[in-house]
Design a protein around this nucleic acid. Structure first.
Lengths: 346, 346
DNA sequence: ATTAGCATTCCTAGCCTGAGAGTGCTAATG
DNA sequence: CATTAGCACTCTCAGGCTAGGAATGCTAAT
């Protein structure tokens, strides 16, 4: 951390101005440009001095000697920290969001739309993730014999996600019903993880006095009817095409798109940075520390809550040059809406 | 159609050679290069004459005067037509495919993996689509009360796809069971379309003598429990990042990626070109006729069958410069495997 | 502490040029 | 008569070069 405290009022103002003009134009910003746009009539020379200090402190970088300065990762962090966060969304934006998400009760579809809306409104990549892993709480299971050797297993979680699976198994419907009843009565509200532990304990213990019921349950269990592993996480990534303009280098662009295609990586990324406990929008600058292909990208995300449960997260990924204020407001707005809509349909 | 028949043996050979070297190198091919690689010692001059004829016939194009020739859309079509199709897949490829698809019984997961494999093996975009529309045949429905005002509806189709939905509805489980039994008994094997027609006819007709059963059915019906519209189509598109190298123009690339993100467009595309009746692999050259952003792309696809049922299609989208032989063999191989694996798990 | 002035550094766009590749035509050839 | 050699011509592309412009850092003046 090179973050010494040489940040007086003037430094702060100039740094902010640099970040803002760089976000707006994309070109390195020089002292003269800055002097012109600055209210108080500071001369370029003065500004140069300040800029030199800021550069020493690690907030600014120079592509080359005679170019202007470019904000560093630190600079963005600082900039975001001192944002007021008071802005609100325009009427159109609000309307657009509401229209897109109106009247959907299916959680998956809702998530898909949400990622789409996030992408549209930020002009960047919109992402939604539902916790699908073992942490999820069970609401309901159901098994149905489909034909010879085939059983349909449906598993509904607290958050409203539905996971279905077709198993190769030959049990009469009666046994399936009994097994479902057993599980629903005993394990509603348990996390998948806890259920699996307890279940295998019981199966082990009662192995001697095996009855028909436990045998059905075991078969279903072995076939994965109750599994909710990583692969069953639900992830929607939308708007990757928006990144084409951002990354100049061909190869980098390709790697970046590849990374976004690997849903698993995305899940880990959000998981690592978005703390479920935190309430508000979180901004992560410097994603390349985790994923090298994500150079010059930032994550703006928030947990997705329904009531008190955290059911996943939603986020925007975009270039460091993103409009922070607007995106943060939008993410926060959508996160609240998410809760509101899904809650009332409950 | 400029397709006169000036295609003698020599023309054919030279055209093929041009297409092949262009596919291999990506550079416009000139008469000298061709003369060198050609077995029979034809001089560049002779070849030039032939090339001029081919250009007149619309098979070749010239980026500019002093560049070589580039195959036209027609040329690719012709080239693909006269491919023998005898090639077979390498051992590694076969192994890789088998490993990736081994031991999956869930149709959706299988489709996802398949699109992934298609993308890996072709180094291009892999696509799988399951017919989700009204043409789909019903296998089984199931309703379950989840809590106040919430009902889970699960709908299994012949092809093994599972469609679930959460409805806002307040019916006791008993009524739900009765409704499910009614539908399963009367409509198993019907297409969704036919079922809906018949159902609304009956509801209309028996309106006078409404009983409790029909009332439940109607409520479910109205809430969309039995709907399988376009939005419930299942589409997997994988490997879009592979196109980055193909399209040079920034803006075009972006439009292209955008198009691929619109799943609906993709479904229409496959639907328009892949005839369910046809057995074999189909190659469509000149996709821009349907979707302007798909300039210089081709589609290599086949219907996905399970037994006698067509349950969707699988395809590769790549540049006109794709390795046709290899991709066609791969698609065909995977299509057969698709049938085989899903059939035996039936 | 601030600013004006100035030499210096470095990138960029534009221009030019020469090499190279390919064509099309004409005339020679078997 | 089909094929080929020869040749003039066209066009692109990479490289080198230059002039202009934008910023900087330093020094000295205010």
């Amino acid at each position: 951390m090179p973050a010494g405290p040489p940040i007086g009022e003037r430094e702060r103002e100039i740094l902010t101005a640099i970040v803002e003009t760089f976000i707006a134009t994309g070109d390195p910003v020089g002292s003269r440009t800055l002097a012109r746009s600055n209210k108080e009539g500071l001369s370029p020379a003065t500004i140069r001095n300040v800029m030199a200090d800021l550069a020493d402190a690690g907030f600014l970088e120079q592509p080359h000697t005679s170019a202007g300065r470019v904000p560093s990762t630190e600079a963005y962090r600082y900039y975001v920290e001192q944002l007021t966060g008071k802005a609100s969304l325009s009427q159109e934006d609000q309307g657009m969001i509401q229209d897109s998400l109106h009247g959907i009760s299916d959680v998956q579809e809702f998530m898909e739309r949400t990622s789409h809306v996030l992408s549209l409104i930020s002009h960047n990549v919109g992402i939604t993730v539902a916790i699908g892993g073992p942490k999820n709480a069970l609401e309901h299971v159901y098994f149905s014999r489909l034909g010879d050797q085939k059983v349909l297993a449906v598993l509904v979680t607290r958050s409203g996600l539905v996971r279905d699976r077709i198993l190769r198994l030959d049990l009469p419907q009666g046994d399936l019903d009994a097994a479902a009843r057993f599980i629903n009565e005993n394990f509603r509200g348990w996390t998948m993880e806890a259920m699996r532990v307890e279940l295998s304990r019981r199966l082990e213990q009662e192995r001697s006095e095996y009855d028909r019921l436990m045998s059905s349950v075991e078969q279903l269990y072995r076939q994965g009817a109750l599994t909710a592993d990583e692969s069953s996480q639900v992830v929607f990534v939308e708007g990757a095409s928006n990144l084409v303009n951002g990354e100049q280098d061909r190869q980098r662009l390709q790697q970046l798109l590849q990374t976004l295609e690997e849903k698993q990586k995305i899940v880990e990324l959000l998981g690592a940075y978005l703390d479920a406990k935190q309430e508000a929008v979180r901004v992560v600058i410097g994603l390349d520390e985790a994923l090298p292909s994500m150079r010059n990208l930032v994550l703006i995300g928030a947990p997705a809550r329904v009531g008190d449960d955290v059911m996943g997260s939603l986020a925007v990924i975009g270039p460091t040059r993103i409009d922070y204020q607007h995106t943060m407001t939008a993410v926060s707005y959508i996160a609240r809406l998410f809760d509101k809509i899904l809650n009332e349909s409950e």
